[in-house]
Design a binder for these strands. Sequence first.
DNA 1: TATTTTATAATGGTCTAACCATTATAACCA
DNA 2: TGGTTATAATGGTTAGACCATTATAAAATA
Lengths: 244, 244
Amino acid sequence: MFQTAKQTKVFQDVVEQIQQAILDGRLKTGDILPAERELKAMFNISRGTLREALRVLEQKGLIEIKLGIGGGSVVKAVDTEQISESLGLLIRSQKVSLNHLAEFREDVEGIVAAHAAVRSTQGDIQKLKLLLDQAQTCVKQGSSQRNAFIEIDKQIHMRLADITGNPIYTSVLHSIHDNIHRYYDKFLSMENRELQENYQDLCDLIQAVENGNVDLARKIAQRHVKRFNQYMKKREREEKVPKV
Amino acid sequence: MFQTAKQTKVFQDVVEQIQQAILDGRLKTGDILPAERELKAMFNISRGTLREALRVLEQKGLIEIKLGIGGGSVVKAVDTEQISESLGLLIRSQKVSLNHLAEFREDVEGIVAAHAAVRSTQGDIQKLKLLLDQAQTCVKQGSSQRNAFIEIDKQIHMRLADITGNPIYTSVLHSIHDNIHRYYDKFLSMENRELQENYQDLCDLIQAVENGNVDLARKIAQRHVKRFNQYMKKREREEKVPKV
DNA sequence: TATTTTATAATGGTCTAACCATTATAACCA
DNA sequence: TGGTTATAATGGTTAGACCATTATAAAATA
């Protein structure tokens, strides 16, 4: 019936107050909080306690603490960095494997492609085709441009997520890419033939999106991601799995 | 070409070292770190600096700091709490709306149901049917048991996520539920008829999963979640949207 | 005058050394 | 035996000092 009464911890109260001010918009992105010695006086607490509160807010991604004169606690735009970090911890603590991440990515990219096929505008398609051109340039230069190709591939996927108009997809995809990236250097082998294959995938995918062909877009996106994953799993088997 | 050289901040180094020890298993869940006055000596730093580091680790979800004798910094099992919190911040900072969350949930629940239809064992189905029985009891008692029904509904969905065998689905669904929950009290209206409808959904869903009917399972799951969302949107329109 | 260098001062980062608050356990008393 | 009260270990907080970083202003130099 009753809940635990208020936390007596001073620093938590401070975290709460500043967080609330940021979330209500009383503090806006880019605003600079008063200097520590002023805040300490405003809250009537010691500087150590205040700093614990600021560190928590920093870790939550709500502020960024800058050094030197002109520095201070700057209010940040809330973004997906913390979600990525937490997902990263789950992976590194072996609660989540590469296979789990790969499967999830296949599903999410499929959904994203399906929504994009319904919602894309002509302008969206043009931007995607611009990226496709860049990808083609990489492919022509062969496997030396592997990393550049992967970067463009990522941009295309992120662009599709944006087209859905739902920022959760952008956030989730961002987190997945952040965390799968660490495996690329170790496990991803892509020779010219694979580059060519993947470039073709992307062409087909964007064509399907342009045509509004929902099911095809989903299917191609999933196949494309599956291909990436298979390259990695192959290498993973060959080299055994090291600690990340 | 070069990256920023090492951070000189002492507390970050401490965070790094303890985090690393936890992630590679040198510190296990339930282990208690030495007392602050010992740690301070081990790292050869001041207590204030150490405490900033511990606060960061606490916010990351890696340790829990307990008060009093027998207390201390206890290593926690990494879980999805931080992901939920970060998603919550995104929502509360109006980067993400209820509609975005609702759409994402429909998609994810669809995928989960589809995987479950392929992977469920007889034992899984039995457990699901046990939950169904409880749901039926609630429905029979009418809308007074609305909250109990919602709780069981949630358990069924979480159970399905577990059946996929991919902890990412469990984590993601957990985060969604944590964050959509705050809307229920405000927006979710469910009379007897709606309870009945939703109970039937769940029956059909579990039947489809048992039969291994992938597409049907996905479709029913999506329809079921969509229904929930529509109840909420209806109320949201009626009552206007307040700050959460 | 224009540019580089150097001092200045504001700000966060760290340290020391206390004392307060909480709580499991042990000692005590009825 | 069973409840109560001290004890001591541990985190929470305070105070005041000094160090490190850095944008800006002042000074030196070309």
